[in-house]
């Protein structure tokens, strides 16, 4: 009853958070803020998975989240390495300054 309705609320919340993260990714130019928006999106997805696990009465949802966490960590590490490498070449660079690959 209440619990079931809440599940859908979790899903809705995750969707909204995902959208916020997506829009932020498209709008912000600062590379670090963009990485943070990606984290937002990943967290929304995590929430969704856990909710699904609850709704389907399955532990698999949480296992997936586990892996997402690990991979997200790895990804942030590499992303920050990229940001550092980029900032060395052009101090104060943002995402718009990397546009050599163009048609």
């Amino acid at each position: 009853m209440d619990a079931q309705n809440l599940d859908l609320a979790y899903l809705a919340l995750a969707a909204i958070l995902f959208a916020i993260g997506g829009v932020g990714l498209l709008i912000r130019r600062n590379p670090l803020v963009m990485i943070m928006c990606v984290e937002l999106m990943l967290n929304a997805v995590n929430l969704t998975f856990v909710t699904f696990g609850k709704m389907l009465n399955d532990i698999t949802g949480q296992v997936i989240v586990f892996f997402v966490l690990v991979v997200a960590a790895a990804e942030v590490v590499v992303g920050l390495g990229l940001v550092v490498a980029m900032s060395r070449r052009r101090p104060g660079a943002d995402a718009d300054d990397l546009r050599l690959l163009r048609g």
Binding site: L25, L26, R29, A95, R99, G103
Partner: peptide, 17 residues
């Protein structure tokens, strides 16, 4: 048409979205 591929990553991301 080639102006679509303007090199901006954010633009590409928008297109994906």
């Amino acid at each position: 048409l080639r102006t679509v591929q303007n090199g901006y990553v954010r633009w590409y991301a928008l297109m994906i979205g």
